[in-house]
């Protein structure tokens, strides 16, 4: 069975791709030994966006359902795990299960309503925004987690890493996120090479045709939302315990949702490596811009994002399928059919 799984995951993947992936993984594994705390924090951000982007990609990239409200799942999971930890001293490793369940329950609710009532395209996207906004305002008035005043986790100077309670130094979060990103990558590869993946892609390309072929589109779209929201929940748990403060205004904000879908779209929607590449490109672009402008003495608030927006527009205009597909061709990494 293990051999079968191995074969399924690697079928048709060029040797060179495996070699490059291995090299990247090794580089990421040794990176914390070489970089300073500032760079480490940026790499953590890269991994956060890579993982969350991968989770979003399941829904949009694989199955074609545009969600613009993924901050909902991040926020719900962050609040769930943090509140369980603060109020009941429940370690986040267990709280994560509750967080995943709640995120998936919300995902199921939204998916059920939308797909039962036949809401698709732009309207579905707007519905996801609406639910995220609704929850944001709701949490502003949710006294158990201190409403709009923000919810804080106790912080102290950590000398050792307590993985069970997710209390520790940034390097611990780095390796946890790296593990998550790798796991999500393999999991998505597994999904894509199986029946589910083919059904999803059929739905993405032409839903009516997929239905005609006998695919239960409702069930498989629901599955995409469930997997995506469950995966995104872990980003939320990470967010809560890494940043230690949660504000509804910030975590549920629509700009958060947009931020986390930029990576996969810029990287290459629907591809496995796109979200990872996109996370690297965008985070390094943003930080690079900041450093350059800071170095040149332009410390005007907003200037970084103006350049960021222009770069974003340029990529979308000139590389409609993202950076990864043309890059993959250049590197000669086309998957054999």
């Amino acid at each position: 069975m293990i051999a079968g799984l191995y074969e399924r995951l690697l079928d048709g993947v060029p040797r060179r791709a495996l070699l490059l992936l291995g090299l990247l993984l090794i580089a990421m594994l040794v990176a914390p030994l070489l970089v300073d705390p500032y760079l480490l924090s940026i790499l953590i951000l890269v991994l956060y966006f890579a993982y969350t982007g991968q989770a979003w990609n399941v829904m949009m990239g694989f199955c074609g359902q545009l969600s613009l409200g993924h901050s909902l799942y991040v926020g719900l999971a962050a609040y769930t795990s943090a509140a369980l930890y603060v109020h009941f001293q429940l370690p986040p490793t267990i709280g994560a299960l509750a967080a995943i369940s709640i995120s998936m329950a919300f995902g199921a609710g939204i998916g059920f309503l939308a797909f039962r009532f036949g809401i698709g395209g732009t309207y579905f996207a707007l519905l996801t925004i609406a639910f995220a906004e609704f929850t944001r305002v709701g949490f502003d008035h949710f006294a158990w987690v201190n409403g709009s005043g923000g919810f804080f986790l106790p912080v102290e100077q950590y000398t050792r890493n307590d993985v069970l309670n997710l209390r520790g130094r940034p390097v611990m979060f780095y390796y946890l996120l790296l593990a998550l990103t790798v796991a999500a990558f393999v999991f998505c590869r597994w999904l894509l090479t199986g029946r589910i993946g083919y059904y999803w892609q059929a739905i993405r390309e032409d839903q009516e045709a997929a239905q005609t072929l006998g695919i239960n589109t409702f069930r498989y779209k629901m599955l995409a939302v469930l997997i995506s929201s469950g995966m995104t929940a872990l980003s939320g748990v990470f967010f809560a315990f890494y940043y230690n403060n949660l504000f509804p205004e910030q975590i549920f904000n629509i700009s958060r949702s947009i931020e986390l879908i930029l990576g996969p779209i810029i990287g290459g929607l629907g591809s496995l490596f796109g979200p990872i590449l996109g996370a690297f490109v965008l985070t390094l672009l943003a930080e690079g811009l900041y450093e350059t402008l800071h170095g040149l003495g332009y410390d005007i608030p907003g200037i970084k994002h103006v350049f960021y927006g222009i770069c974003l527009a340029a990529v979308i205009m000139y590389l409609p399928h993202g950076i990864w597909p043309p890059l993959r061709r250049k590197l000669g990494l086309e998957t054999r059919q």
Partner: peptide, 17 residues
């Protein structure tokens, strides 16, 4: 959507500047 979101980011931050 991405194109207009990028335009929106530029507009908000240009006003901020």
């Amino acid at each position: 959507f991405m194109l207009l979101a990028a335009v929106a980011i530029v507009m908000v931050n240009a006003l901020l500047m």
